[in-house]
Structures are given as C-alpha cells and as structure tokens.
C-alpha cells in the first residue's frame, strides 16, 4: 500500500489498435494488482473514451496517435488519454439525455450510450484542450482493501 505505479501505452486511433491497446492495458493493470472485479469496468470506460477519439477526434479517414497514461496507487487509478485530434465540441464532455428504452421498437436507440457509460463507470472525468492536445482524465476510486504486494 502507498506504492504508486505509472505506465504509458500508445496506439493508433483505429478500432483494431484500440482493441489491442485495451488488452495491453488490462494485463498491465492486472500485473500491478488492480483487482479482477475492477478490470472490466475500467476496460469498458477506457474503450468508450478511445472509441470516441477514433470516431470524433479523427473522423473519416483521418487517424493519429493516442497516448494512454495510467497511474495506479492503492486507492486510486487515473487513466489519461492524450490525442491531437479535433477538440470536443463546446470544450467539454457532452451532457445529453440518456437514451430512452421506453419507445416503439423502430425508434429504439442504437447509440448515444458512450459518455453515459464513462460517467457511470468513473468517479470523475476531466477534459482539457491545451494547444493542439486533448487530454481526458478518467478517475477511478478503488475500495479500501489490501492489494497484491509487488515483488521487487
């Protein structure tokens, strides 16, 4: 406890590369002792954020690099995604109504879930645009309990 670990991954802003990066993120976090029951939620939140970058920061045929910084301490995980694509509209993560399931079948939503999932799965998100760079931080509080000790 009290120890802190950081690592960086990089991927292209493309769906197949995102899949690969998520797999690397998951195994790196697992090795550092993040509990197995937290991994799926973290993976999903980061997946949604990366998918947004692929789709909106680099629309169409455009692509670029995404840097994924992770910092894990006993009680806290922060994953920061950094890219040089388009900024978020209005300079902040969108606040939209939740897609509504209580509608006729042909009107059922097929999208618009991403940011809601990110908010549901994180404790805090923070977005900044600095120069040409988007930085999105996803913060996850970790329950107070012993973690796997790292062997030096």
């Amino acid at each position: 406890m009290g120890s802190s670990h950081q690592f960086t991954l990089r991927c292209r802003a493309e769906a197949d590369a995102v899949r690969q990066a998520l797999s690397e993120l998951r195994s790196a976090l697992s090795k550092l002792g993040l509990s197995e029951d937290r991994l799926p939620g973290v993976e999903l939140a980061v997946a949604e954020a990366l998918n947004n970058i692929v789709e909106h920061a680099f629309p169409g045929e455009k692509t670029g690099d995404v840097r994924i910084d992770a910092a894990l301490s006993g009680k806290h995980l922060c994953v920061t995604l950094i890219d040089t694509g388009r900024p978020l509209p209005n300079g902040r993560p969108p606040v939209e109504k939740r897609p509504n399931p209580d509608v006729e079948r042909q009107d059922l939503p097929e999208g618009g879930f991403g940011w809601h999932l990110i908010r549901d799965l994180t404790d805090l998100i923070a977005y900044t645009r600095a120069g040409e760079e988007n930085r999105l931080q996803l913060h996850f509080g970790l329950p107070d309990r012993p973690e796997k000790q790292q062997t030096p």
Binding site: L44, A47, E48, R105, L108, P109, E110, G111, F113
Partner: peptide, 20 residues
C-alpha cells in the same frame, strides 16, 4: 465476454431489423 456501446448498438439494430 466484452461488449461496448458499439456492440450494444449492433445488437439493438439486429433486433430492430427483424421487423414488427
């Protein structure tokens, strides 16, 4: 063992495609 919102949307779309 993993779906994201794209996968969820694809499942909903497949259901809608079946028709009424």
């Amino acid at each position: 063992d993993f779906i994201d919102s794209s996968g969820l949307g694809a499942i909903v779309a497949s259901m809608k495609h079946l028709g009424g």
